[in-house]
Measured scan of single mutants.
Amino acid sequence: QIGDLVNIDLDLEIVQSLQHGHGGWTDGMFETLTTTGTVCGIDEDHDIVVQYPSGNRWTFNPAVL
């Protein structure tokens, strides 16, 4: 839910696979593998929007978090 702290604890290849159809994966997202983020929103597809200390916001398949 919004305000929750979240981490990704999966291998890169699994995360990339799960992201298909959920915003995809870009090289800029590598920070998300090692950094705790804060849930800042849930979109119309029930994907999770997470903000990181860098100021970046990324959209994830809920199965990734």
Rank of each mutant, 00 (worst) to 15 (best):
F60Q: 02
W25Q: 07
Q19V: 03
V39R: 02
N7S: 14
V6T: 04
F60N: 13
G37L: 00
G21D: 11
Q16C: 02
N56S: 08
H20W: 11
T34H: 10
I2W: 02
E44F: 10
L18G: 05
I14L: 13
G24T: 00
I48M: 11
T35I: 03
L10Q: 11
Q19E: 04
S54A: 01
I2R: 09
S54Q: 03
T34S: 15
L33T: 03
S17W: 14
L33G: 03
P62E: 08
V15E: 05
D27Q: 14
I42D: 04
G23P: 00
I14W: 08
L65H: 00
V50L: 01
E13P: 12
Q51G: 07
L10M: 14
G24N: 06
H22K: 07
V15I: 13
T26R: 07
P53N: 08
E13S: 10
G21S: 04
G21T: 01
Q51K: 11
V49H: 04
D4K: 08
N56C: 03
T32M: 03
T34I: 10
G37N: 01
F60I: 08
V39S: 03
L18F: 11
Q16A: 10
V64K: 03
E13D: 11
I8W: 01
L18Y: 09
I8D: 12
V39G: 08
T26V: 15
M29R: 07
V39D: 00
G24E: 04
I2E: 11
V15L: 15
T32W: 01
V64E: 04
T34K: 15
G21Y: 09
L5W: 10
T34M: 11
P53R: 03
G28M: 08
D9A: 09
E44W: 07
F30E: 15
Q1V: 12
W25P: 08
I42C: 09
G23Q: 00
D11L: 01
L65P: 09
A63H: 10
D4H: 13
L10D: 14
L18C: 08
I8S: 12
T38V: 15
T32F: 06
G23C: 04
G55Q: 05
I42G: 02
G24W: 05
D43N: 15
V64Q: 07
Q1P: 12
T35S: 14
V49Y: 04
E44R: 14
L10P: 04
T59M: 04
L5S: 15
V64G: 01
I2N: 10
G23A: 03
Q1C: 13
I48S: 02
H46G: 15
D4R: 11
C40I: 13
S17D: 13
L5Q: 14
L5P: 09
V15T: 07
P62K: 04
G23S: 04
R57V: 11
P53D: 05
G21M: 05
G23D: 03
L18M: 12
G28Q: 14
G41N: 04
I8M: 03
I8A: 03
L65R: 00
D27R: 10
G3E: 01
V6H: 06
T38K: 13
I48Q: 04
L5F: 12
N56V: 04
S17Q: 14
G55A: 00
D4W: 01
V49C: 13
V39M: 08
A63I: 08
W58I: 15
R57K: 15
Q51T: 09
H22W: 01
G37A: 01
L5Y: 13
G28W: 06
Q1T: 13
W25T: 02
L18Q: 07
E13R: 12
I42W: 14
L33E: 01
T36E: 12
G24K: 01
L33I: 06
D11K: 08
S17P: 04
V6A: 05
F30Y: 15
C40Q: 10
L65V: 12
I14N: 11
W25R: 06
L65E: 05
H46W: 12
P53S: 05
F60G: 03
P62S: 03
